[in-house]
Amino acid sequence: MPAPTAGARRRELGAFLRSRRGRVTPQEAGIVPGPRRRTPGLRREEVAAAAGVSLTWYTWLEQGRVNGVSRQVLDSLARALRLGDAEHRHLLELAGEPAAEPPGPATVTREVRDLLAMVEPNLAHVVTRRFDLVAWNAPVDALLRTMPERPSGEDLNVVWLMFHSAWMRERFAEWEAEARWLTALLRNEAARQVGNPGFERLVARLTATSPRFREFWESHDITPFTPSERRFRHPDLGEVTLRYMKINVENDPDQSVLVHYAPPGSPAAEALARLSRA
C-alpha cells in the first residue's frame, strides 16, 4: 500500500479534528451554552481559545492548509478536545510526530502475560519500540539467571545488552551479524521517532560507550523485522537453532512479543524442554 501523501495526511488530520470537536459537549469543556446555541459540539473558536492558538490558524488546520504542527500545540489540542490515549497517538501520527513516551514503567496486560506463559517451553519476551525488555516468561528467566550481573533500569534494553554484555556475545553464535541487524532495526524504528527523547537518549548512550555500535550506526543501514532463525550457544545445552517471530500488541503499539520457538519433536524442542525444567 503506498504511503499517504502530505496533502492526504493534512486532510485526514483536519477531518479527525472536526470529528472530535463535534463530540465534545460545551458542558464537558466548561462552557455554559446559550439558549440559541445550535452547534452540538464545540465551535472552532472555542477549541482555538482552549488550545491557545488563533482562530484563523485553527481553521486552516481543519481545512488541511497547515504544514507542520509542533508537539506542544498538538498536545494542547488533545487536551482541548479531551482525547483519550489512542486518539492522542492517532493525532500525533497524522501530524507526523512520534508518539510521546509512556509515563512511568511500561504496563504489560494480563492477556500478554498469559500468552507468554502459554508458549512455554518456547522463549518469549516483550519489548518496546526502543527494544526495552519489559516482560518475559519462565524459560527466558532461566537464561537471565545465568547472567553474571542481572541488568536493570535503562540497561535492561536488548540493544544495550547486545553491545555491552559479554554474556550476550557468548550466547549468539553469529554475534556480529546479529548486532548489525539489531542496529539496522533500531535505526529503522528511530526514523519514525525523530524527536523522541527516549530514542535520542539510547542512541547517545550507545554511541558514546560502544565503538562497534557507533561503527554500525554510522553506516545508516536499515532493515524491517522479518521472521527467521538464529543460533544460540548454551553452556549445558550446546548450540541450539531457533526460529523467531514478532507479534504486535494491538492495544499498545509501543509493545511487541518476540517468540523464539522450535518445531515440535526437534532436537531444539527437546533442548528448550530441558531448559524449562532447569
Rank of each mutant, 00 (worst) to 15 (best):
1 M>L: 00
2 P>Q: 13
3 A>M: 02
6 A>K: 01
6 A>E: 04
11 R>A: 06
16 F>R: 06
20 R>T: 06
21 R>T: 02
24 V>D: 03
27 Q>K: 07
28 E>C: 03
33 P>K: 10
38 R>N: 13
39 T>C: 09
40 P>Y: 13
42 L>F: 01
45 E>I: 10
46 E>Y: 06
54 S>P: 11
59 T>W: 08
62 E>N: 04
63 Q>K: 06
69 V>I: 15
70 S>T: 15
71 R>C: 07
72 Q>K: 13
75 D>H: 12
82 R>E: 02
84 G>M: 05
94 L>D: 05
97 E>C: 07
100 A>C: 00
104 G>T: 00
106 A>Y: 15
120 E>G: 00
121 P>F: 01
121 P>L: 01
123 L>M: 14
132 D>R: 09
133 L>Y: 04
136 W>H: 14
137 N>C: 02
150 R>H: 12
154 E>W: 11
161 L>V: 09
167 W>D: 09
167 W>S: 08
177 A>M: 10
178 E>P: 03
179 A>C: 09
183 T>A: 11
185 L>K: 09
186 L>C: 01
192 R>E: 13
195 G>A: 06
196 N>P: 07
197 P>E: 06
203 V>R: 11
212 R>A: 15
215 E>L: 15
215 E>R: 15
215 E>N: 13
217 W>L: 11
226 T>R: 14
228 S>M: 10
236 D>C: 04
237 L>G: 01
244 Y>C: 07
244 Y>W: 14
250 E>S: 14
251 N>C: 10
265 G>F: 11
278 A>R: 07
